[in-house]
Protein backbone atom coordinates (compact mmCIF):
# COMPACT_ATOMS: atom_id res chain seq x y z
CA UNK A 1 0.00 0.00 0.00
CA UNK A 2 1.18 3.48 -0.91
CA UNK A 3 1.25 6.40 1.51
CA UNK A 4 -1.76 8.67 1.24
CA UNK A 5 -1.78 12.44 1.71
CA UNK A 6 -3.38 11.83 5.09
CA UNK A 7 -0.56 9.47 6.06
CA UNK A 8 1.98 12.10 5.08
CA UNK A 9 0.16 14.68 7.19
CA UNK A 10 0.04 12.41 10.25
CA UNK A 11 3.62 11.11 10.05
CA UNK A 12 5.21 14.26 8.65
CA UNK A 13 7.49 14.87 11.64
CA UNK A 14 8.98 11.39 11.61
CA UNK A 15 9.28 11.29 7.82
CA UNK A 16 11.78 14.14 8.33
CA UNK A 17 14.07 11.72 10.19
CA UNK A 18 17.19 10.96 8.14
CA UNK A 19 17.00 7.43 6.80
CA UNK A 20 13.29 7.00 7.42
CA UNK A 21 11.61 9.26 4.87
CA UNK A 22 8.66 8.36 2.65
CA UNK A 23 10.15 4.97 1.78
CA UNK A 24 10.62 3.97 5.40
CA UNK A 25 7.16 5.15 6.37
CA UNK A 26 5.67 3.09 3.58
CA UNK A 27 7.52 0.02 4.86
CA UNK A 28 6.08 0.64 8.31
CA UNK A 29 2.59 0.92 6.83
CA UNK A 30 3.03 -2.46 5.14
CA UNK A 31 4.44 -4.21 8.23
CA UNK A 32 2.90 -6.38 10.91
CA UNK A 33 4.33 -6.78 14.41
CA UNK A 34 3.40 -9.33 17.05
CA UNK A 35 3.60 -8.20 20.69
CA UNK A 36 3.24 -10.92 23.28
CA UNK A 37 1.92 -9.64 26.58
CA UNK A 38 0.91 -6.05 26.37
CA UNK A 39 1.73 -5.06 29.94
CA UNK A 40 4.46 -2.87 31.43
CA UNK A 41 6.75 -3.48 28.48
CA UNK A 42 4.34 -4.45 25.72
CA UNK A 43 1.85 -1.66 26.44
CA UNK A 44 4.13 1.34 25.90
CA UNK A 45 5.77 -0.54 23.04
CA UNK A 46 2.42 -1.07 21.31
CA UNK A 47 1.59 2.56 21.88
CA UNK A 48 4.79 3.77 20.21
CA UNK A 49 4.37 1.41 17.25
CA UNK A 50 0.74 2.44 16.80
CA UNK A 51 1.65 6.13 16.93
CA UNK A 52 4.43 5.55 14.40
CA UNK A 53 1.94 4.11 11.92
CA UNK A 54 2.78 0.42 11.78
CA UNK A 55 0.22 -1.17 9.48
CA UNK A 56 -0.91 -3.96 11.75
CA UNK A 57 -0.36 -5.05 15.35
CA UNK A 58 -1.09 -8.54 16.61
CA UNK A 59 -1.49 -8.44 20.39
CA UNK A 60 -1.52 -11.49 22.66
CA UNK A 61 -2.33 -11.00 26.33
CA UNK A 62 -4.45 -13.08 28.69
CA UNK A 63 -6.22 -12.30 31.95
CA UNK A 64 -8.25 -9.50 33.45
CA UNK A 65 -7.04 -6.11 34.63
CA UNK A 66 -5.99 -5.99 38.31
CA UNK A 67 -5.16 -3.11 40.61
CA UNK A 68 -1.51 -4.18 40.63
CA UNK A 69 -1.32 -3.73 36.83
CA UNK A 70 -2.02 -0.04 36.95
CA UNK A 71 1.41 1.29 37.97
CA UNK A 72 2.94 0.24 34.65
CA UNK A 73 0.42 -1.27 32.21
CA UNK A 74 -0.43 2.06 30.65
CA UNK A 75 -3.05 0.68 28.27
CA UNK A 76 -5.16 -0.40 31.26
CA UNK A 77 -7.55 1.94 33.06
CA UNK A 78 -9.36 1.94 36.39
CA UNK A 79 -12.75 1.42 34.72
CA UNK A 80 -11.31 -1.71 33.12
CA UNK A 81 -10.65 -3.50 36.44
CA UNK A 82 -11.89 -7.09 36.32
CA UNK A 83 -12.36 -7.05 32.55
CA UNK A 84 -10.12 -8.62 29.90
CA UNK A 85 -6.88 -6.66 29.49
CA UNK A 86 -6.82 -7.23 25.76
CA UNK A 87 -10.08 -5.27 25.28
CA UNK A 88 -8.53 -2.22 26.88
CA UNK A 89 -5.38 -2.62 24.80
CA UNK A 90 -7.39 -2.58 21.59
CA UNK A 91 -9.60 0.32 22.67
CA UNK A 92 -6.74 2.56 23.80
CA UNK A 93 -4.66 1.89 20.72
CA UNK A 94 -7.58 2.50 18.36
CA UNK A 95 -8.22 5.82 20.11
CA UNK A 96 -4.59 6.70 19.52
CA UNK A 97 -4.49 5.62 15.89
CA UNK A 98 -7.68 4.43 14.20
CA UNK A 99 -5.80 4.06 10.92
CA UNK A 100 -3.99 0.89 11.94
CA UNK A 101 -5.28 -2.68 12.00
CA UNK A 102 -5.28 -4.52 15.33
CA UNK A 103 -5.72 -8.25 15.75
CA UNK A 104 -6.09 -9.49 19.31
CA UNK A 105 -5.64 -12.80 21.06
CA UNK A 106 -6.94 -12.95 24.63
CA UNK A 107 -4.36 -15.56 25.61
CA UNK A 108 -0.68 -15.54 26.40
CA UNK A 109 1.69 -17.46 24.14
CA UNK A 110 1.27 -21.23 24.37
CA UNK A 111 2.39 -24.28 22.41
CA UNK A 112 -1.08 -24.29 20.85
CA UNK A 113 -1.11 -20.73 19.52
CA UNK A 114 2.53 -19.78 18.98
CA UNK A 115 2.84 -20.95 15.39
CA UNK A 116 -0.17 -19.04 14.17
CA UNK A 117 0.76 -15.89 16.06
CA UNK A 118 4.33 -15.78 14.75
CA UNK A 119 3.40 -16.72 11.18
CA UNK A 120 1.28 -13.61 10.75
CA UNK A 121 4.06 -11.19 11.75
CA UNK A 122 7.08 -9.66 10.04
CA UNK A 123 8.65 -8.90 13.42
CA UNK A 124 8.05 -10.24 16.91
CA UNK A 125 8.41 -8.42 20.23
CA UNK A 126 8.80 -10.58 23.29
CA UNK A 127 7.50 -8.80 26.39
CA UNK A 128 6.42 -11.72 28.58
CA UNK A 129 7.48 -12.06 32.22
CA UNK A 130 7.77 -15.86 32.17
CA UNK A 131 10.80 -17.57 30.68
CA UNK A 132 8.68 -20.47 29.43
CA UNK A 133 6.76 -18.09 27.15
CA UNK A 134 9.86 -16.24 26.01
CA UNK A 135 11.78 -19.37 25.15
CA UNK A 136 8.77 -20.81 23.33
CA UNK A 137 8.45 -17.67 21.27
CA UNK A 138 12.20 -17.69 20.59
CA UNK A 139 12.06 -21.30 19.39
CA UNK A 140 9.21 -20.51 17.03
CA UNK A 141 10.94 -17.39 15.69
CA UNK A 142 14.06 -19.44 14.95
CA UNK A 143 11.91 -22.10 13.27
CA UNK A 144 10.08 -19.54 11.11
CA UNK A 145 13.17 -17.34 10.65
CA UNK A 146 11.43 -14.27 12.05
CA UNK A 147 13.35 -11.46 13.76
CA UNK A 148 12.70 -11.11 17.47
CA UNK A 149 13.29 -8.03 19.60
CA UNK A 150 13.69 -9.16 23.19
CA UNK A 151 13.28 -6.60 25.96
CA UNK A 152 13.47 -7.40 29.65
CA UNK A 153 13.84 -5.60 32.93
CA UNK A 154 14.23 -6.12 36.66
CA UNK A 155 13.85 -3.43 39.29
CA UNK A 156 16.03 -0.50 38.05
CA UNK A 157 17.78 -2.37 35.24
CA UNK A 158 16.80 -3.33 31.74
CA UNK A 159 18.25 -5.16 28.80
CA UNK A 160 17.55 -5.39 25.09
CA UNK A 161 18.79 -7.34 22.10
CA UNK A 162 17.67 -7.97 18.54
CA UNK A 163 17.71 -11.58 17.41
CA UNK A 164 17.95 -12.42 13.71
CA UNK A 165 17.88 -16.21 13.35
CA UNK A 166 20.99 -17.48 11.62
CA UNK A 167 22.87 -14.23 12.18
CA UNK A 168 22.81 -13.64 15.90
CA UNK A 169 22.63 -15.63 19.14
CA UNK A 170 19.07 -16.60 19.99
CA UNK A 171 17.41 -16.21 23.38
CA UNK A 172 18.25 -19.80 24.33
CA UNK A 173 21.93 -18.97 23.74
CA UNK A 174 21.58 -16.32 26.43
CA UNK A 175 19.30 -18.38 28.69
CA UNK A 176 19.98 -22.09 28.23
CA UNK A 177 17.80 -22.89 31.24
CA UNK A 178 14.87 -21.40 33.05
CA UNK A 179 16.37 -19.74 36.09
CA UNK A 180 15.43 -21.32 39.42
CA UNK A 181 13.08 -19.50 41.72
CA UNK A 182 11.92 -16.96 39.13
CA UNK A 183 8.61 -15.43 40.10
CA UNK A 184 6.16 -13.79 37.72
CA UNK A 185 5.85 -10.87 40.12
CA UNK A 186 8.98 -8.80 40.58
CA UNK A 187 9.93 -5.16 41.24
CA UNK A 188 8.89 -2.84 38.40
CA UNK A 189 8.70 0.94 38.14
CA UNK A 190 6.59 1.74 35.09
CA UNK A 191 9.07 4.32 33.84
CA UNK A 192 11.79 1.66 33.69
CA UNK A 193 9.69 -0.85 31.76
CA UNK A 194 8.45 1.97 29.48
CA UNK A 195 12.06 3.04 28.83
CA UNK A 196 12.95 -0.47 27.71
CA UNK A 197 9.71 -0.65 25.71
CA UNK A 198 10.53 2.49 23.78
CA UNK A 199 14.10 1.35 23.11
CA UNK A 200 12.59 -1.90 21.79
CA UNK A 201 10.15 0.09 19.65
CA UNK A 202 13.08 2.00 18.15
CA UNK A 203 14.83 -1.28 17.32
CA UNK A 204 11.67 -2.47 15.57
CA UNK A 205 11.12 0.75 13.65
CA UNK A 206 14.75 0.75 12.44
CA UNK A 207 14.56 -2.89 11.46
CA UNK A 208 11.29 -2.54 9.56
CA UNK A 209 12.04 0.80 7.91
CA UNK A 210 15.64 -0.19 7.15
CA UNK A 211 17.82 2.47 8.72
CA UNK A 212 20.27 2.85 11.60
CA UNK A 213 22.23 0.18 13.44
CA UNK A 214 20.58 -2.66 15.30
CA UNK A 215 21.47 -4.35 18.58
CA UNK A 216 22.40 -7.54 16.75
CA UNK A 217 25.02 -9.69 18.50
CA UNK A 218 24.82 -7.05 21.21
CA UNK A 219 23.04 -6.84 24.54
CA UNK A 220 22.20 -3.34 25.70
CA UNK A 221 22.13 -3.04 29.48
CA UNK A 222 20.51 -0.01 31.09
CA UNK A 223 21.04 0.92 34.72
CA UNK A 224 18.39 3.42 35.77
CA UNK A 225 20.08 4.05 39.13
CA UNK A 226 23.22 5.45 37.52
CA UNK A 227 21.71 6.20 34.07
CA UNK A 228 24.47 4.14 32.46
CA UNK A 229 24.03 2.31 29.18
CA UNK A 230 26.43 -0.53 28.34
CA UNK A 231 26.69 -2.51 25.12
CA UNK A 232 27.88 -6.08 25.60
CA UNK A 233 29.09 -8.28 22.76
CA UNK A 234 27.23 -11.61 22.90
CA UNK A 235 28.00 -14.88 21.16
CA UNK A 236 26.25 -17.97 19.87
CA UNK A 237 26.31 -20.86 22.31
CA UNK A 238 27.67 -23.74 20.22
CA UNK A 239 25.59 -26.27 22.14
CA UNK A 240 22.37 -24.23 21.95
CA UNK A 241 19.47 -26.68 21.55
CA UNK A 242 17.45 -24.16 19.52
CA UNK A 243 19.91 -22.55 17.13
CA UNK A 244 23.12 -24.51 17.74
CA UNK A 245 23.38 -25.50 14.12
CA UNK A 246 21.65 -22.41 12.85
CA UNK A 247 24.56 -21.19 10.66
CA UNK A 248 23.29 -21.20 7.91
CA UNK A 249 19.81 -20.87 9.32
CA UNK A 250 17.09 -23.42 9.71
CA UNK A 251 19.05 -26.64 9.87
CA UNK A 252 17.84 -27.82 13.23
CA UNK A 253 14.12 -28.42 13.44
CA UNK A 254 12.91 -27.72 16.96
CA UNK A 255 10.41 -30.21 18.37
CA UNK A 256 6.90 -29.51 17.10
Amino acid sequence: MELTDRDRAIYEWQIWVNGLGDAGQQKLKNSTALITRVGGLGGPLAQSLAAAGLGKLILAHGGNTKHSDLNRQILQTHDQLGKPRIESCRRRLMELNPQIEIETCGENVTEANVRGLVSGADLVFDCAPLFEERLLLNRECVRQQKPLVDAAMFEMEGQLTTIIPGQTPCLACLYPEIPPGWKREFPVIGAVSATMANLAALEGLKLLAGFGELLTNTLLIFDARSMDFRKIAIQHRPDCVVCGSCRPPGIQEPPS
Partner: peptide, 8 residues
Protein backbone atom coordinates in the same frame (compact mmCIF):
# COMPACT_ATOMS: atom_id res chain seq x y z
CA UNK B 1 27.38 -11.45 36.58
CA UNK B 2 23.96 -11.04 35.01
CA UNK B 3 21.17 -13.44 35.97
CA UNK B 4 18.27 -13.56 33.50
CA UNK B 5 15.65 -10.85 33.65
CA UNK B 6 12.29 -10.89 31.97
CA UNK B 7 9.37 -8.81 30.73
CA UNK B 8 7.76 -6.18 32.89
Amino acid sequence: LLPPMSGG
